[in-house]
Design a protein around this nucleic acid. Structure first.
Lengths: 154, 154
DNA sequence: ATATATTGTGGGTAGTTGTGGGTAATAATC
DNA sequence: GATTATTACCCACAACTACCCACAATATAT
């Protein structure tokens, strides 16, 4: 398969078990480069969902944060809010990662979860919440998409 | 796991015991390089919290301080306030460090504390104070905050 | 169509981690 | 020098996590 490395697309339905574990879809694991050491960084998403980055991708974020001096108040609160809920996880022999109860609560995850590929990261959603967020964002008026047109070619 | 060395992320709830000891989260201890000799430098944070640096990281800060000319009044008082409350601690067999009563007072720590990874250092907070500081700073600098987010968050 | 490999899900077990308390060594005070 | 306070070091235990195995469902190959 010649898909881009560390790049994820598609939607998958999976189970979050009693121990707080979810499977990472095999298709996602197979495009993970070896230097990730089968590991991700899992954190709060900007939407009410969980974000999962390949560790290599996350490290580039960390490197940027490291450059910010803690003398500045804004810098401090930005670093804090960015890394506060982030932690690294390695998937087990069965391909599952553990989701902390903190994140399960934040994204209001139940037994059934939706896993979305989002190009450079993965999102884990409660299906109902994704639905309502989706409907809401359809109301966003098309002028905002016009703005995006300047930045990306589809 | 291939996380960056001497780099900390995530939020953890821990207990400060009657003897003034707190556990350093295992995840943090495990990314500490051996040359730190299981030791940190603990000092006052710029926010009302306690800062905990790996000794190796702290040494590089000292190197920077050394470069600041003492001709400037601002420099002098900055160096003074930075170094004044700093002291080194080694964690015990159970992974705990002792927090001096001076610092406990400064950060107003009770039995329950929050430990935050802040990339190159660790913060120890009273949860209530973190809450209010967090809310306040989000009001004040939201525009600068967004700017940083646009540059750094992937 | 059948056999083989891969993938998703559940659960058990051994080791690790967090927390409290105890005892000995050291320092401080009278 | 004796007494008290403080600190460093050790042990115990409950809770949790990482790791392993089992098995059913799905996909792939023969």
């Amino acid at each position: 398969m010649t898909l881009n490395q560390n790049t994820f697309t598609g939607e998958y339905s999976y189970a979050l078990d009693a121990k707080g574990r979810v499977n990472i879809p095999a298709k996602f694991r197979n495009v993970l480069t070896a230097d990730n050491d089968q590991s991700f960084v899992i954190t709060r998403g900007m939407d009410p969902c969980v974000w999962v980055y390949p560790i290599i991708v996350w490290q580039s974020i960390e490197d940027e944060l490291r450059k910010l001096s803690s003398l500045s108040q804004v810098n401090r609160s930005f670093v804090r809010s960015t890394v506060r809920y982030a932690s690294s996880v390695q998937y087990d022999k069965q391909g599952r990662i553990a989701v902390s109860s903190n994140l399960i609560q934040y994204a209001d995850l139940g037994k059934e979860v939706l896993i979305l590929g989002m190009v450079n990261k993965i999102e884990i959603w409660n299906p109902d919440i994704l639905d309502s967020v989706d409907k809401q964002s359809q109301k966003i008026d098309s002028s905002q998409f016009d703005e995006l047109a300047n930045q990306i070619i589809l």
